[in-house]
């Protein structure tokens, strides 16, 4: 294998791994958007908040990581319940834009709450995930692959598979899909929307927690974590707002695309391609295929 091709592969793999992270954040968006038509601006902050909580309970209460995880999950579920009680319930039947504004407010509240509870300094998140390069890949294929990224990809795949089973095979999963299809009809067969919202925000919270932990162990838990949510936006435009596979494929495309573009296009335009590549791609998609790769084409009679 030539050195150049090996380097290209390394770039792609590292892009794929970053893409998995994007996909995880985007997944949280899709879940909530599908079930309630709300574009949840706070999803990125939820990642930050979840990761902060995870680290916080370890620091403040000295819990071991394996106890901190269920504690953080519990906090995210409690948060979902509070959001339903205090926000969503009162905004039933409002325009999507109003709900969207509410989630912007929610983002600020969560950000402040996270700071208030756990402090605003950059935190180290170490749950003993393997660090450094994988020797196996280095020895056998002469490729540099981060162990952490591999672990992240594996965990993300497990999570996605678990979600797929949950959605396809369980009674509640079926109800969630039913609500996504037709609110009114779901209501008429006796599915309680309030319960469904709590469930879906809890699931989105748990996905955010996993994403937060992964990003956190890569680059520390800090405010910039909430900004990856912005990267999830082009992912969603690419994959379609309503499609779970779309979020995953979109994430991978953006991850690989921006890494490859940075490496091979960067030198010609003075670098920093990584920062805008995703948005340019999204813009192109909006022009050509606004529903995204896997999104539902919205047909509206006027």
């Amino acid at each position: 294998m030539s050195v150049e091709f090996g380097f290209f592969l390394e770039t792609v793999i590292s892009g794929l791994m970053a893409g998995v992270m994007y996909a995880l954040v985007a997944l949280g968006f899709v879940l909530i958007f599908k079930a309630s038509g709300i574009f949840n601006f706070a999803q990125g902050v939820m990642c930050l908040f979840a990761a902060l909580t995870f680290v916080g309970v370890q620091e403040k209460f000295g819990l071991p990581a394996w106890l901190a995880l269920p504690a953080a999950v519990g906090v995210m579920i409690l948060l979902a319940w509070l959001i339903e009680r205090l926000v969503l319930r009162h905004l039933v039947n409002q325009d999507p834009i109003i709900l969207f504004m509410a989630t912007i407010g929610l983002a600020y509240v969560l950000e402040g709450l996270g700071d208030l509870m756990w402090g605003s300094d950059v935190k180290l998140l170490d749950i003993g995930l393997p660090q450094g390069a994988s020797d196996y890949m280095l020895d056998n294929f002469n490729l540099y692959v981060e162990k952490l990224e591999v672990v992240a990809a594996v965990i993300a795949s497990i999570l996605v598979a678990a979600l797929a089973v949950f959605f396809q095979k369980t009674r509640v999963g079926r109800a969630l899909r039913a609500v996504a299809d037709d609110h009114q009809a779901a209501l008429s067969v006796g599915i309680s929307l309030n319960t469904i919202w709590v469930i879906v925000w809890s699931v989105a919270g748990i996905v955010a927690l996993v994403a937060g932990i992964m990003w956190g162990s890569k680059s520390g838990v800090q405010f910039s974590l909430s900004l990856i949510a912005l990267k999830a936006l082009p992912v969603l435009i690419l994959g379609g707002f309503t499609s779970i596979p779309g979020a995953i494929v979109g994430g991978l495309i953006i991850g690989v695309g921006e890494k490859v573009a940075e490496v091979y296009m960067g030198p010609f335009v003075g670098g920093a391609v990584e920062n805008w590549f995703a948005y340019m791609l999204a813009l192109a998609f909006l022009l050509v295929r606004p529903q995204g790769l896997f999104g539902e084409k919205i047909i509206e009679r006027v």
Binding site: R174, R177, A178, A180, D181, D182, A185, A186, S188, I191
Partner: peptide, 25 residues
């Protein structure tokens, strides 16, 4: 239970899944 005007089936669910959502409660 009400069967709404315009049928309102869950379009992306299979017929059998539609029927099973009826048993949700």
């Amino acid at each position: 239970i009400q069967v709404m005007e315009g049928r309102h089936c869950f379009g992306h669910l299979s017929i059998e899944e539609n029927l099973l959502t009826g048993a949700y409660t």
